[in-house]
């Protein structure tokens, strides 16, 4: 039995039973089982995938700048697209790569793909071949997949001198120089724009080595988790545009007039974010209640 005098000396008194029960109920808000939370997020995402809300997605300036940079290139201009992400980021970055490659083929640009993260090479092959099939583009004439090279810094720097030297054979193990799509292309000087899709800091290496050293113009697509890191580079003009995460991908899909996976996923994204904000509020209410209860006890 606690001494009521001690409690009064410490500046608090025992609450009435009804108030205590209410506080305990609120405090319990902070103790929901994690599996219930897991179920809630799964139900929220799945439910909205079945019944989309069809909310409008405004296009941001940074995404439009990527679109404009590609749009203003004349037909048959070479463009370099680097798939620097692995399978873990695929659900997030794959939709934007499809949208951008489709845009490039529609503009009749000569696409040079590569991947400087190991898995990015296979993902790049999948994206390029599937979109090319769909749009009737020919390998070696309209596009080529240079493949992968280890030591990302060495590869980026080497391409500033001689691309064929870095990639003597393409992803299909054929001599790169023999493809018509490579005509007149030696290094970055012959490529007016580079698009980098990155899940990590690989984009910073492109900025540092291709951008700073060779003056390569760069636009980027980034996993949302890394997007904030790229804003200083966007502000300084070291990258000219940015597609951040699935939201950016859905904007790009809208710009080229397609409804892809990114656009279809944005409603689910909305509801999931609301749920997480709700969880943060709930957790804090529970925390404040349990703190005041501790104070009372």
């Amino acid at each position: 039995m606690p001494d009521p005098r001690t409690e009064r000396e410490h500046g608090f008194e025992r609450p009435e039973p009804r108030r205590r029960l209410k506080n305990e109920a609120i405090a319990r808000l902070g103790q929901v089982d994690r599996r219930i939370l897991y179920l809630a997020i799964a139900v929220a995402v799945v439910g909205i995938l079945f019944r989309p809300l069809g909310l409008r997605i405004p296009v941001t300036d940074e995404v439009r700048r990527v679109y404009d940079a590609i749009e203003e290139l004349p037909a048959r201009t070479p463009i370099l697209i680097s798939f620097d992400f692995g399978a873990p980021s695929m659900p997030e970055l794959y939709p934007m790569t499809v949208a951008v490659v489709r845009h490039c083929f529609r503009r009749d640009l000569r696409v040079l793909g590569l991947g400087l993260l190991p898995e990015g090479a296979s993902i790049g092959a999948e994206v390029l071949d599937s979109v090319a099939d769909e749009m009737g583009r020919v390998y070696g004439v309209d596009y080529v997949h240079l493949g992968y090279k280890p030591q990302i810094e060495a590869a980026i720097l080497g391409m500033g001198e001689d691309i064929v030297r870095v990639f003597p054979r393409d992803f299909r193990s054929q001599p790169t120089a023999e493809y018509p799509v490579m005509d007149g292309i030696e290094n970055y000087r012959d490529i007016p724009l580079m698009v980098g899709f990155a899940s990590g800091t690989e984009m910073v290496l492109w900025i540092q080595y291709a951008g700073a050293r060779y003056g390569q113009r760069i636009v980027s697509g980034a996993a949302a988790v890394m997007a904030t890191v790229f804003y200083p580079y966007l502000d300084s003009g070291q990258i000219e545009g940015l597609i951040p995460g699935l939201r950016g991908a859905s904007e790009y899909e809208q710009l080229i007039g397609m409804t892809g996976r990114a656009s279809r996923g944005m409603d689910a994204q909305s509801v999931a974010h609301l749920l997480i904000i709700g969880c943060i509020i709930l957790g804090n209410v529970g925390y404040l209640a349990s703190r005041s209860r501790r104070g009372e006890g």
Binding site: I41, A42, V45, V46, L49, F50, P88, S89, M90, P91, E92, Y94, A223, A224, V225, A227, T228, V229, P244, G245, L246, R247, R261, R264, G265, A268, Q269, A272, H273, I276
Partner: peptide, 22 residues
């Protein structure tokens, strides 16, 4: 802001897998 974007990234991955399964 990074946390907000991280939440977005993780949810996007879940959406991608659900789109695959469903």
């Amino acid at each position: 802001a990074t946390f907000g974007y991280t939440v977005m990234a993780r949810i996007s991955l879940l959406i991608g897998r659900m789109q695959f399964l469903l």
